[in-house]
């Protein structure tokens, strides 16, 4: 293992901002794994830490295939993590909306540029990331519908679902999108949680990465019985929306299978406790995303269902 500082930025009063990378193996740039890019992505950081622990063991045992280099960046934004702020401390910009970056630009453009120079040209790019809405997901892998990341390759993670996302204008400045522009096959991994550690889904994500690398012959690792991922488009998810604002009381959690007509959540009047609305499953499906904040707004997709 080679621990290196990939990017540094001096601060006036705080410690230097450092992006740290962990290299395993040597040879061609085979896979790069990026953890948290936002200050609240603790689960994403944790997943990388567990992968680093695993790769260290594999390397010591000679189980990283010759000619392959693996690079892991547990966090590209420790500065925000340390003050528990999602975006960049001084100007609230999102590093994951600054790629490929610009070396003469503003601070987060420079960070994106400095990081991207180190993590581009890999064959595969894997990013642990999070959704802008608060909620829990069924662990899955996402890829953009533009570029050349292939759903069949994404199936090698062995997660229950591969979701193909239609590119929106704001996606074009994300790491995932730009990796692909520069010929890296990019995959975003979503685990159950973001701001808290869920060891089970983190374990599932670590195993998924190990599966993938093993099937690509980058590591030697015994893969348990393979799960055949279902490939879906994000448009195929069924959104269960609130009609009312109020207190959100879920009756299912991410991953639960639900019957047609099953109550999924209640929305309560916040002062008097009356049920304003009950949300029901229209079809027998699986709860793919469940809102996890106690309050909700009207017209909000608090639950997303997917074919089981």
């Amino acid at each position: 293992m080679n621990k290196t500082t990939l990017y540094t930025l001096k601060s006036l009063y705080r410690d230097d901002f450092r992006v740290t990378g962990y290299e395993f193996g040597s040879g061609k740039k085979s896979v790069c794994i990026v953890g948290s890019s936002r200050g609240n992505e603790v689960q994403q950081l944790y997943c990388c830490s567990q992968l680093i622990r695993k790769f260290r063991q594999l390397e010591a045992e000679g189980r990283i295939a010759a000619g392959h280099k693996i690079l892991v960046l547990p966090s590209i934004n420790p500065c925000s993590m340390n003050i528990q702020k999602r975006f960049w401390p001084t100007d609230n910009t999102d590093i994951n909306r600054m790629f490929p970056g610009y070396c003469l630009g503003e601070t987060t453009q420079r960070i994106a540029d400095g990081v991207f120079r180190e993590i581009s040209e890999y064959q595969f790019g894997i990013q642990f990331t999070s959704f802008y809405m608060p909620g829990d997901f069924v662990p899955h892998v996402r890829l953009m519908d533009e570029g050349f990341s292939c759903p069949e390759t994404a199936r090698q993670f062995g997660l229950p679902y591969v979701v193909i996302r239609r590119v929106r204008p704001y996606d074009t400045a994300t790491l995932n999108y730009n990796w692909q522009v520069w010929d890296t096959q990019a995959f975003s991994l979503y685990t159950t949680s973001t701001a808290r550690i869920d060891p089970n889904s983190a374990g599932q994500a670590v195993l998924a990465v190990m599966n993938f690398l093993s099937r690509q012959d980058i590591i030697k690792y015994t893969v348990p019985g393979g799960l055949r991922s279902r490939v879906v488009n994000d448009a195929d998810l069924i959104s269960i929306r609130t009609a009312k604002s109020g207190i959100f009381v879920p009756m299912v959690k991410a991953g639960d299978t639900v019957e047609a007509g099953q109550p999924l959540a209640n929305i309560l009047e916040p002062y008097e406790g009356d049920i304003l609305e009950t949300l029901y499953a229209p079809l027998p499906m699986t709860a793919f995303f469940v809102h996890n904040e106690p309050l909700t707004y009207a017209d909000t997709a608090v639950i997303k269902l997917i074919e089981s």
Partner: peptide, 8 residues
């Protein structure tokens, strides 16, 4: 007044 490297 506070700037970080890169601030405009």
């Amino acid at each position: 007044p506070i700037v970080v490297e890169g601030s405009l």
